[in-house]
Amino acid sequence: MRVLAFDTSSPVLTVAVADESRVLGEWTTNLNKNHSVTLMDGISALLDEIKTDPDQLTAIAVGQGPGSYTGVRIGVSTAKSMAWSLGIPVIGVSTLETIAMNAIGFGGLIVPLFDARRGQVYTGCWDSVEMTSLRSVLDERIILLRDWLPQVLEQAAGRPVLFLGDDVSLHRAVIEEMVGEQARFAPSGLNHPRAAQIAWLGMQKLEQADAPDTHAVNPEYLQVSEAEAKWLANQQK
């Protein structure tokens, strides 16, 4: 098994190749929003560096969001097109779970988040099953942070809660106010999605179930578009 993994859902661009036992290479930047220009060259450079041609890949794993709509689409369109043209499986992985993986082994709840404007966040909640896997405690969603934190606290039942993600700094005051001494904040190296984690999560999924239909692998936006939401609201009037 040789898996190419990448994610373009946030300002982070991350690409990795891994097999069952080790990560062969990983490349990550956290400043470039123009993933359309840089993603393919990034993949090409990494594969050249580890002397791998695309036809040696056996699967592709991609972060399917949530995050920037355009960013997620660049990653997912690239992943499903590559996988389809190579005749190999493509697996979508949650970008939030990918970040949560950075803190596997933490002895409390792990809450990664992306800012979604107007006090909202894209978020989810996991806890660790020792060092081997994560268990989802609350489903991923877009929600007002002030509505989210009480639910997390209830699940925490007194345990510490680790907040992950570069956008945590935007919301730190609210988190400290509402979570108090149970709140933990991570060193910066744990805050961004890493493609090596996507590769690992993708391989886990492939072990547990059949690969999904390539055509049906699509972004997880977690909300309908604004135009569709308005239209639906008008229909219900």
């Binding site: 359309s36 993603l39 393919m40 090409s44 689409r73 369109s77 690239t78 097109s81 590559m82 043209s85």
Partner: peptide, 20 residues
């Protein structure tokens, strides 16, 4: 439309790269 264009461009580049 930029978001629309990007899907086709990403797909074309991906297939071009994957299959040479």
């Amino acid at each position: 439309l930029v978001g629309a264009l990007l899907v086709g461009v990403a797909a074309a580049k991906a297939i071009s790269y994957a299959r040479g």
